[in-house]
Amino acid sequence: MKKIFDKKHISRTTTYLMVVIAYIVLTILQKTDNLGSLFSSLLVPVCCYIVAGIGLNLNVGISGELNLGQAGFMSVGAFAGIIISGLLSPIISSGVIRLIIAIITGALVAALFGYLIGIPVLKLQGDYLAIVTLAFGQIIMSLINNFYIGVDNNGIQMSFVDNKLNLGDGGRVLISGPMGANGVERISNFTMGIILVIISLIIVYNLMYSKQGRAIMAARDNRIAAESIGINISKTKMLAFVISASLAGAAGALYGLNFSTVIPTKFDFNTSILILVYVVLGGLGNMKGTIISTTLLVLLPELLRGLQTYRMIIYAVVLIMIMLVSNNDQLKNMFSKVFAKNKKGVEDVS
């Protein structure tokens, strides 16, 4: 018990507590019908963005590599999850078990993609690395946009570029190119979303405070110094990259199975950027910040719905103002004086 509340762990503990309390409060509100249908429908997507954001924060904040293609990994995870859930639906009737299998599959497939993409990507540095992740995100979207898969009594059929599916009796189309997946069974739920958030927090926190995590941060802070003390840079960077990708994949699977229709262009460059915005606003390397900023920024456009057409303009202005204010030296000094005494519990990894 003492260990949980000491200086090093207090921030982690409050993060977990925050998630659990949010879950309890929201579930009570939902069960007693006090949560509007709009907010209920946002619960699972918020969880998905949080998990993908935590993954991206590991990559951008802890490992220090700008990734502009996180949505690509979400996409891979989403469609892998949809396929496996669709294939298993006649065999396993329980939605929860299929959801778990789908999330694990999504995470594994995205991890595999992350590994394959990581081999060339991690050879580059800085903005060049960022542009290559952007390129891979576009390639993944373009490939899934041309991917057709269906199943009938004879087995699975796949085709590429042109829809050559020729399904027999009892055939079902799982993914139909640019039309994406239609008629997906919606098996995602908020509980699973929260469990996934907690699992990803456990993974990332344990990694951050382990030997590997310290090696990743050392490689970020000074590549040459880290190399000189025997840290294998490409291996540590790859570890962070693959875990980040697999978290995005798991989030994608949860996301994909939350809607009856999912199109490949949902996971485009803008989605990658959106997740990056959540991460940067929450604070690099700060997982609690990612959770809070993701929740607020997903809700913000919805809360502004009363203002209708002006809402996205206000959203953009808020985004710019936050960046300007948070990087203003005078304001920073003012805040640091006010909060000087509260600095102890701050999660400081950067």
Partner: peptide
């Protein structure tokens, strides 16, 4: 105002400007 800020902050601001112009045009 962000001349001295970390490059990611400038990147996010640029994205904000991009949203602003797109939605303003819309």
């Amino acid at each position: 105002p962000l001349r001295q800020a970390p490059s990611l902050a400038v990147l996010i601001t640029a994205i904000g400007v991009s949203y602003f112009l797109q939605n303003g045009a819309q």
